[in-house]
């Protein structure tokens, strides 16, 4: 079931480098939130901190709270593995598992969690692939390696893999940046579909994309090189793109910098 996320005063570090400063942000359920901002302002860093992928990088750490339906995912008692099972992620570059077939890629999360029932796995694979708009293209070659698909198909495969474990939240870091306009459109449509069941946070450099797919937009910026990135403003997408409340946001979305 889709859940809400409340980020409270989140500070993120890489070693001694303070990458993101004091983010406070609410992501409602069944809603698409877009992160926009210039390169290096910490969008990916914030996104990765939402399912505790940030701390996978040696030396990286997080301070503050991220509440998933009121429960702090950073509290000491919480197992990061269970957080990631609840909050799925799609990366910028498609990264299917090269040793696995298309079907096995999709059900990798379940299989590696110990589900053995073939029939159930086949059902899940079909449902996830249909959900990711890929079923028609691959249904005749489910046993073929995932690495043999086109870039756009691979990205949808990765989305299928992420939704196959039925997370509550889906994080997407520039999922279309390596794709052609047709595949991009396919994935945008898909995000519109997925919104019915999932809470989605998406990082994008493409203003039109943010305007098209998101309900809420968060603009991040940084004061200068070596300075931490900050959340400048967050509001309904329509408002951000028509009547932002800060000058920096207006400059950015109208292409005057960044």
């Amino acid at each position: 079931m889709a859940k809400r996320i409340d980020i409270k005063d989140l500070n993120l570090f890489y070693g001694s480098f303070h990458a993101v400063d004091g983010v406070t942000l609410a992501v409602p359920p069944r809603n698409v939130t877009a992160f926009i901002g210039p390169s290096g302002c910490g969008k990916s860093t914030v996104l990765r901190s939402l399912n505790r992928m940030h701390e996978v990088i040696p030396g990286a750490r997080a301070e503050g709270q991220v509440l998933l339906d009121g429960e702090d995912i950073y509290s000491a008692a919480v197992d990061p593995v269970s957080v990631r099972r609840t909050i799925g992620m799609v990366f910028q570059r498609p990264n299917p598992f090269p040793t696995m077939s298309i079907r096995d890629n999709v059900v990798a999360g379940l299989r590696l969690a110990g589900v053995r029932d073939r029939k159930r796995l086949d059902e899940v694979a079909e449902r996830a692939l249909r959900g990711a708009n890929l079923w028609a293209e691959v249904k005749d070659r489910l046993g073929k390696p995932g690495g043999g698909l086109s870039g756009g198909q691979q990205q949808r495969l990765c989305i299928a893999r992420a939704i196959a474990v039925q997370p509550d939240v889906l994080l997407m870091d520039e999922p279309c940046s390596a794709l052609d306009p047709i595949s991009t459109l396919a994935i945008e449509d898909l995000i519109g579909e997925l919104k019915k069941d999932y809470t989605i946070v998406i990082v994008t450099h493409n203003m039109q994309q943010a305007a098209r797919v998101s309900d809420q937009t968060a603009f991040f910026n940084l004061a200068g090189v070596g300075q931490p990135g900050k959340l400048i403003e967050v509001d309904d997408t329509e408002k951000i793109f028509s009547n932002p409340s800060t000058k920096a946001t207006e400059d950015y979305i109208s292409g005057r910098f960044g």
Binding site: R84, F91, N95, F97, A113
Partner: peptide
């Protein structure tokens, strides 16, 4: 073995040891 594969696996909620045994070593 690219780190992206490890991250893809972690992001599915697969523990590190299982990621190594089932994803990294087979690759």
């Amino acid at each position: 073995v690219p780190d992206e594969l490890r991250e893809a696996s972690y992001a599915l909620g697969i523990p590190k040891w299982k990621t190594i045994v089932k994803i990294v070593l087979p690759t």
